[in-house]
Simulated assay, not measured.
Amino acid sequence: TKSYSVFKSLRSEGLTDLITRGINAYHKTKDTNIGETLFFYPLIGVMNKLAFELSSNSEKDE
């Protein structure tokens, strides 16, 4: 239940920023093409933020 609450609070924060950061990561050189669809950049970012928040919360609970 706590994990779902954390997910709900993170799921829509900074999605545009996550897309921009994902695109910029692949455009370091002119010859690099984007390897994923734009759908995956915010998904990956939210998953990373969620993992970080859950691990931070579990350390606090100990």
Rank of each mutant, 00 (worst) to 15 (best):
F39I: 06
K60D: 14
E62Y: 11
L38F: 10
K30V: 11
D31T: 07
V46Y: 07
H27R: 13
R11W: 04
S9R: 15
S56G: 01
N33R: 06
L43V: 14
T20S: 10
R11D: 02
L15Y: 02
L15H: 02
L54R: 01
S5R: 13
N33Y: 04
D61A: 14
G45T: 04
Y41M: 07
D17L: 11
T1F: 11
L50Q: 13
G22D: 04
Y4E: 13
I19G: 01
S5Q: 13
L10T: 14
A25H: 06
T37S: 12
R21M: 02
Y4Q: 13
T32Q: 14
T16L: 05
T37V: 02
K30R: 13
D31C: 01
T29Y: 03
H27N: 09
T16V: 03
N33H: 04
I23F: 06
V6N: 01
K8H: 05
T29L: 02
K49E: 10
L50I: 11
F40L: 10
L50A: 12
E59S: 14
G22F: 03
T37F: 03
Y41K: 02
G14P: 00
S9V: 08
D17H: 08
S12Q: 11
R21W: 00
I44F: 10
N48W: 06
H27T: 10
L15M: 09
T32L: 09
G45M: 03
D31A: 06
M47D: 09
D17R: 11
L38G: 06
S9G: 07
S12I: 06
K28Q: 09
K49T: 00
T20F: 10
H27A: 05
S58V: 10
M47I: 09
P42W: 07
G45P: 03
L15Q: 08
R11C: 07
S3N: 14
T16Q: 03
G14N: 12
F7D: 03
V6F: 04
N57F: 01
I34R: 09
L50W: 15
N57G: 00
R21G: 01
G22R: 04
K49S: 09
D61E: 14
D31S: 09
K60M: 12
L38K: 02
E36A: 07
D31Q: 06
I34G: 07
P42Y: 08
D17A: 13
A25Q: 04
E36G: 00
P42E: 06
T37D: 09
S12F: 15
N24D: 07
L10R: 14
E36Y: 11
T32P: 00
A51Y: 03
K30N: 10
E36H: 11
L38Y: 08
R21C: 00
I23C: 01
G22H: 04
G45H: 03
P42L: 09
A51W: 01
E36L: 14
S3Q: 14
Y4R: 12
F40Q: 07
I19W: 05
S3C: 13
K49C: 05
F40P: 00
L38R: 02
H27M: 07
R11Y: 09
D17Q: 13
T1L: 11
R11A: 05
R21N: 05
M47N: 10
T32K: 11
M47C: 13
K8F: 05
L15G: 07
P42H: 08
F52M: 07
E36Q: 08
N24T: 03
N48R: 15
R21T: 02
S5K: 12
